[in-house]
Write a protein that binds this DNA or RNA. Structure first.
Lengths: 231, 231
DNA sequence: CGCTAGCTTGAATGACGTCAAAGCGAGTGG
DNA sequence: CCACTCGCTTTGACGTCATTCAAGCTAGCG
């Protein structure tokens, strides 16, 4: 009955509507619970699309999601990768200004936007939570602006360290995303990403055991390159 | 009694504390009023500094303010210019992550942060307003990330059009800020800004009647260059 | 074993930054 | 009123770094 038509960009929402499993009370963040259902997405499956009505808010249960903007010239700016416990789909307007896709097999908690909005109108704690989430997103986006002025190798070092702190161990990290994804996130080309990874390996900062698995060999070198802004 | 020591970065706040003029009820945004006092700032005078306790929230009454980050290597990333009716100094943390300075002679409405926070705890409408302001800031910051992938001339065309829509007329705009400010906002050097302005003049998109006054000669050319992202 | 998609590597191009010098304009003092 | 000066701006020559174009390579899979 439900054919594979994720490219149309609506099927996933029909699937959510058709999901008759009982919503469970789940935390969006911090305090307060809201009913939510769990949905599964295959790699590269669309979650929502730019310009579509913003009916749901999402929280990653497992897997990874990318949110991105498609530019006029066909290029793609990846806004953020969302890992377990991250909330996304929370915006100001009634329509999405970004698109979202699963990077790998992913499970999401799906909240009705109307329920969250209603909760925020009656309950200042919920409104504060939304403010806090948006504020944190703003901080990360500002950091991205600052990063975008730095060199390719610095951006990549910073990216690997951040990724490691989210989904890696002390000594290594598995890249859930392709070189294309990394390039579109950092504002580089896949060739440059590849070259800089090779360069990081050449200076013994990392080892690429496979194309998707990175071992941190010298965190200090990475940290110096990542060189966070300060006053 | 109060010596000129704005470089220390505290004098301005002492001045606010010492201001015994009766606070008037003022709108932060939309609905709801909060007591505020008016403060005047000279060109380049500091409003607050990175790392300082975040005691106030500001709204521009007249003039222009720049908020910026100082990077480890001494470079400066201007985060935003704030024009009349813009609110700034609203962040997530208890300390400022940005610095703020007047670009030109400026008057600000100064609100106590504690009053605003208290209002937001008891009054969901105020909390919603803060959320809306932060959301709008986030949108602008995202647009900056997207812009930072584009060429120098495109960034500049986009900047001039945005500036024109805020403080210009149909046909012209006065630049309140220096080439340094523009460069640090767009992530370019002053030389490149200057070259691109000359280039825009060469292709008859604008005319620079003085270094600070720009006449729009062909808005279409600017718009095509500015070429907003779309899906 | 060969195919394909994703990744890596190389060489040439181009955009912006850097360094250097000259131009311009507003304020100052003669 | 004019010459001088200082800071900002413009312009030029050149270097650097990321992109582009073009092969090759590798790993997963039929």
């Amino acid at each position: 009955m439900l054919t594979a038509c994720s490219t149309i960009g609506v099927a996933h929402e029909e699937r959510i509507d058709a999901c008759h499993s009982a919503p469970r009370s789940e935390q969006l963040s911090g305090t307060g619970t809201v009913p939510a259902v769990v949905m599964s997405y295959a790699a590269d499956e669309r979650v929502f699309g730019q310009g579509m009505p913003r009916r749901f808010v999402y929280k990653v249960k497992s897997g990874v999601v990318r949110t991105f903007t498609l530019l006029g010239d066909g290029r793609r700016q990846i806004d953020a990768f969302h890992f377990p416990d991250d909330v996304f789909g929370l915006e100001l307007n009634d329509d999405h200004s970004l698109s979202a896709e699963a990077v790998a097999a992913t499970q999401l908690l799906v909240f009705q936007r109307s329920l969250i909005d209603r909760a925020a109108e009656n309950n200042c704690a919920m409104a504060q939570e939304l403010l806090s989430l948006t504020g944190r997103t703003l901080e990360r986006t500002r950091a991205q602006v600052v990063l975008s002025r730095r060199s390719a190798i610095e951006r990549l070092a910073n990216f690997l360290l951040n990724l490691g702190s989210r989904v890696g161990t002390e000594t290594s990290v598995d890249l859930p995303m392709s070189r294309y994804d990394i390039a579109d996130y950092l504002g580089l080309t896949i060739e440059t990403v590849s070259r800089m990874l090779s360069e990081l390996e050449r200076i013994d900062a990392i080892v690429l055991t496979t194309t998707r698995h990175i071992v941190f060999r010298d965190r200090v070198k990475l940290t110096v390159l990542s060189n966070p802004p300060m006053g």
